[in-house]
Design a protein around this nucleic acid. Structure first.
Lengths: 185, 185
DNA sequence: TGAAGATGTCTCAAATATGAGACATCTTGC
DNA sequence: GCAAGATGTCTCATATTTGAGACATCTTCA
């Protein structure tokens, strides 16, 4: 199962490097339940590992978001599912947005496409929000930027709550309650 | 101005290490506008620097929270000022809570007191929340834990928004709007 | 069973991070 | 202008991290 080990390492890397970006790769291998030597067999170095993480996060977030948007023509339902999509992606979502909002985020050659897709995903989210605002369903005095950031914030809060040990089915309800009310629904 | 340089380094360390916990100290020195050599004159190593950061974050958060609670006998006003206190502390608040909620957070000798104070501050916040819930001012179906986490989350969101470049006076209004509605006010 | 593929162990060289000594230089208050 | 204190520069030794070769072991499937 070559594919599985590589995938395990990438998942581990996303978890660890999201918490501690410069953590030694030993820590990633540990989290993956693998030797550092094995990690290096799959990834030449941190750069390559990070690139694979970026691709995986992008793939996962794109898929989850696409499903959320396809779940209903009703933007309010779409918004709710967007929130759940972020929660389900967990660290992948958190790390993905973190990487693309860092102040030192430089567009290295080959990463430009990634950034373009990030922007595209962001745009699709914004469209849902502005439409709701236009229809007067949610508060229009909040900038769409703030609503997007709040969405991320509530997702991260939900992840935190899960780590502290909160019961799962209620978490989504709390998250949607707080987010929807928080944007003036 | 011996005091000032030390303080500058600590502030820089809080900013940098909050973003990237294992970042090389060179990065901290850079942020402080100082040489690595100078940093090492004030702090023997990462441990000591982190301990000073912890003390500074604790001091700053304690002071801000205390002022917030003293601002009014009305718990709703206290809550609003608690939010603003977190926003004003910025990275100090974010890093402070991060350090004390990490899963690998072990109580080294000498840090037990810090954790006790963190718990004490947390308890004071929780008291305000439970009182509001008891009085039926905010939604009682949300656990106080969730409300506390949401408070942190909105503070972090506000910090993110500020970094992206949002206009300051509105930010607080957005933050309080989203947080207060989000807890069912 | 046994050959192929995957992983662990041991080892090592290179790169990077850390901590500090020695001394020059740069403020600052007198 | 100068003495004291603070900081920068250059340098070095040590520690940690990184990347990979060589080989043993372990799994698995025909």
């Amino acid at each position: 199962m070559t594919r599985s080990t590589e995938q395990t390492i990438v998942e581990a890397a996303i978890l660890v490097l999201n918490e501690d970006y410069s953590a030694p790769l030993e820590r990633v291998a540990e989290q993956a339940g693998v030797t550092r030597r094995t990690l290096h067999r799959y990834f030449t170095g941190r750069e390559e590992l990070l690139a694979c993480c970026a691709r995986e996060m992008q793939r996962s977030c794109r898929e989850a978001l696409t499903q959320a948007l396809a779940s209903s023509p009703e933007p309010l339902v779409q918004l709710e599912h967007m929130l759940y999509a972020g929660i389900d992606c967990g660290a992948k979502y958190a790390f993905f947005t973190k990487l693309h909002t860092r102040p030192d985020h430089q567009h290295a050659p080959g990463q430009a496409a990634d950034c373009a897709e990030y922007d595209a995903l962001q745009a699709r989210c914004r469209a849902v929000i502005t439409r709701l605002q236009h229809d007067g369903r949610i508060s229009a005095h909040l900038p769409a930027e703030w609503v997007l950031l709040l969405l991320s914030g509530v997702v991260k809060t939900t992840i935190d709550a899960r780590m502290v040990g909160a019961t799962e089915p209620h978490l989504r309800q709390f998250a949607w309650f707080s987010f929807s009310k928080g944007i003036g629904l």
